[in-house]
Amino acid sequence: MPARLFAARWSRWLERRIPPARQVRLDQRRIFILPTPQGLMFGVALLLMLLAAINYQNSLAYGLTFLLLSLGLVTILHTYRNLAGLVLAAGEAPPVFAGEQAGFRLRLQSSGRAHRGIALGWPPAPLQPVEIEADGSSEVELFLPARQRGWLRAPRLRVESRFPLGLLVAWSWVDLDLAALVYPRPQSGELPPAGGGVEDDEEPGMASTRSGVDDFQGLRPYQSGDSRRRLHWKAWSRGQGLLVKDFAELQGHDLWLDFDSLGGDREARLSLLCHWVVQLAGHEQPFGLRLPRVTRAPGSGALQRDLCLRELALFGLPANPAEGRP
């Protein structure tokens, strides 16, 4: 397919010409410029005016036509200048769950002059306008839909400006090495009957973890994903709503989230695990995660949560965002 061939060649060429970098300064190597449809319309209008000038042999009409033509030429410089010298730097991109919008923070910095009417984004989505004052900087957050877990590598970013007259568009495709980690889409569901405590039989010291459910702590409202077996039916029959028996696990009686103990395909299991990691971490309950080839020791808190989610996100995928590049 020639179009696809061309696209591939184009992206290879871009790769050489504007190599990925966390920070890019736009200069003549990186800026392209062409007339916009409005610019072409302007050209047609100029042609009509020139015809009128020729037919009426009118020097002033020639003058006006040439003035506007010169204006078009001068605008090339201005449109280019408006983009040149702009420094784009990648900021952080917080991880998201699949199905959400991944946000990428960018910092646009002026290296002297003001940059007006800059727009950036990933077409065909509408570009986001931004202004940078002279010697100032602006922050933008751009969003991409996160469809799959793993590293979401942002494609080349289009930066463009039509300022001042809208007759020309100067643009660049920059690759700021933007990548966001996408966790699996959380899918509520039950853990296996063992209550997530599928213990490792080869570790005798942990035999008692199975009874982690014994330390009854109290009742709390039902949340989706809670095991039905923990429902407090008596309370429900008394009309107190759905309550769940809450258990506190003792130190050493760790909860293990085990990939192998679940049914369903890989992604479904990861989604379920993801849900439980979020749930448990939200309740400050310590837990461990066991995936084929990877084991994360029990722990609690935000760090544990993030590390576990990261393992889930990257399970079976390259760990380096650069390798995930298409």
Partner: peptide, 25 residues
């Protein structure tokens, strides 16, 4: 912008060839 376009305009005005009317108007 207009001011910057003036020198270019003068060059075009001086050098652009003047044709006779292409059709009667």
């Amino acid at each position: 912008l207009l001011l910057q376009a003036v020198p270019l305009m003068l060059v075009l005005f001086l050098l652009f060839p003047r044709l006779g009317p292409l059709w009667s108007v």
